[in-house]
Each structure stands twice: as C-alpha cells, then as structure tokens.
Amino acid sequence: MSLQGKVALITGGAKNLGAQIALELAPLGASLALHYNSPKTKEDAAKLQETFKKQFPNTKVAFYAADLTTEAAVNKLFQDVTKDFGQIDIVVNTIGMVLKKPITEISEAEYDKMFAINSKAAFFILKAGAANVKEGGKLITIVTSLLAAFTGYYTSYAGSKAPVEHFTRGVSKELAGKRISVNSIAPGPMDTPFFYPQESPEAVAYHKSNAMEGRLTDVKDIAPIVKFLCTEGQWITGQTIFANGGYTTR
C-alpha cells in the first residue's frame, strides 16, 4: 500500500528506532518530518539526511530540533511541519527516557523529568495530532513491554509510560469518526544505546533469555509494525501491541 502524498511526523526520528521507521516509510512514498531533541543528535540527523540523499533522493525530508516537554513546543513543531509540508497524515512518537533506580533514590526532579518526557509530551503530541492529522490518519506512540510486567527499579519508567495506554484508548474513541487510528506499540528491551547505560551484563543476559532467539528486540522488529499500522492496519485502533519476542504478555 502506497503512502504517496502522505506526510509522516516522527518524533525522535533522527536515530535508533525513529530513524528505522523513517527508512521503512520512505520507500512507500511518504514525505518525512523528523524531530530530534538534543543538540548532540544533530550529527545523527546529518548522517541520516545523507542516507536519504543516496537511497531515497526523491523523498522530501526535513529535520526539526525541539524539547517537546511543553505544549507550546509541541504546537510549534506541528505548526512548522504543516507550514513546510502543507499537512500531517501520520504521527509516530518514539521519544522516551529510562531511569532504573530504587524508588527510595528517585528525586522529585527526576520524577518530574520522567513524567514530562514519557507522559506529558505524549499527551500533548496526541492532542496536537488529534487537532492536525487529516482524516484517515494514524497516531502511534512507542511505550514499553514493562506495562505487562512488574519489576523493581523501573517504577518511574513504567509508571510514566502507563498513562499513554489510557490516552491512546480515549483518543481512539474521540477520533473514530474521522477514521484516525490511534495505537501504542510496546517493544521489549531494545538493542540500542538507549538501553545499556543502566543495565549490568547479568541483567542484559537475563533480558535476552526471556525472548525468542535469546536476543533483545531490534529496531527492525518494530519498524515494520509501524509500517503495517500506517498501511493495511487501519482497522486496529485503541490498542497496545506488545511486540517483544515473547518477553512478556498479559
């Protein structure tokens, strides 16, 4: 199914999973608005832009830098993308932050930051998507398979992702009349630089042992699911899809 004439906004789209999703959607004809947060990611954005020039020279791609933890910043991003591309048909929100600590060591500032990135930003991205995405569009948010498991030390991470399930279900009902599907995808622990800093080698081995093939989730496991939801998967809405190689379920 073609995405010719469609515009996809991918938050966190300059590297890791966001970049892989962009590379999945480009061959289908989608134009791509790729957001990144940190100035440190500017180099990754430049490398990805070169990749597009070589592999998909006819794909329109633009990059946007912004901290999306305020509604004003989210609205500005949507306004800028609409101005540059004329419309938005697909929004994929991949941004997130991990914190692995005992609850007794989590500061109020850390709590606020976790919820600002994982919950507040997701809420206002969905709000802006609801207001801006064209009829028949798609809203997709990346959450975590820890929503189907409970373990110590990830309390603030899983807790700050959990509200997104409720946001997703509610918004899917509100947008059903416009045929906009709204879903969350919950990967297992992913083999990206996002995962390793807080994990010991023993913890990494344990996570691997709980999934098929004895490995972590790869970004290439998740990006095709996003592609499916953006194409043939229109009838799926209001769901959290646990894509984790059997890591956990509920």
Rank of each mutant, 00 (worst) to 15 (best):
K40I: 12
V164W: 02
K83L: 11
V171D: 01
A65D: 07
A203N: 11
A45W: 00
K101W: 10
G245K: 09
E108A: 15
V204W: 10
K42I: 01
F242A: 04
L23W: 02
E24L: 09
A73P: 01
D218L: 15
T192S: 05
S156A: 09
Q234G: 06
D44N: 14
L77A: 06
N210I: 03
A30Y: 05
N37D: 10
L48W: 07
T168E: 00
A158K: 01
A243P: 05
G137W: 00
G233K: 05
I10L: 06
G86H: 12
L48F: 04
M190H: 08
I95G: 11
K47G: 04
A148C: 11
V61Y: 12
G137H: 00
K42W: 03
G214D: 07
E71I: 00
F123M: 09
K100W: 11
A148R: 14
E174K: 00
A203T: 13
A122P: 00
E202L: 02
Q87L: 12
Y206D: 15
E232M: 07
P224G: 02
A8Y: 03
L77F: 13
K6F: 04
A205H: 02
G188V: 05
I225L: 15
A30V: 03
R169M: 11
V226F: 01
N183D: 00
A14C: 13
P57C: 06
T11M: 04
I95Q: 06
G246M: 08
E43Y: 12
A176N: 10
D80V: 00
V74M: 01
I125A: 08
G177F: 00
E24Q: 11
M97L: 15
V226C: 04
T51C: 12
T82D: 09
M212D: 06
A46Q: 14
C230F: 01
V91H: 02
A186E: 05
P197C: 08
E108K: 15
G13C: 10
S200I: 02
I103M: 15
A186L: 09
A46M: 10
G245P: 05
K60V: 08
A131W: 03
V171F: 02
G5N: 15
D218R: 15
D44M: 05
P224M: 01
K40F: 12
S184K: 09
F123C: 02
N58R: 13
A205Q: 13
T168G: 10
M114S: 13
G86S: 12
E24D: 14
K113T: 06
S172F: 07
G96P: 01
S172E: 02
M97E: 15
T240P: 02
F52R: 11
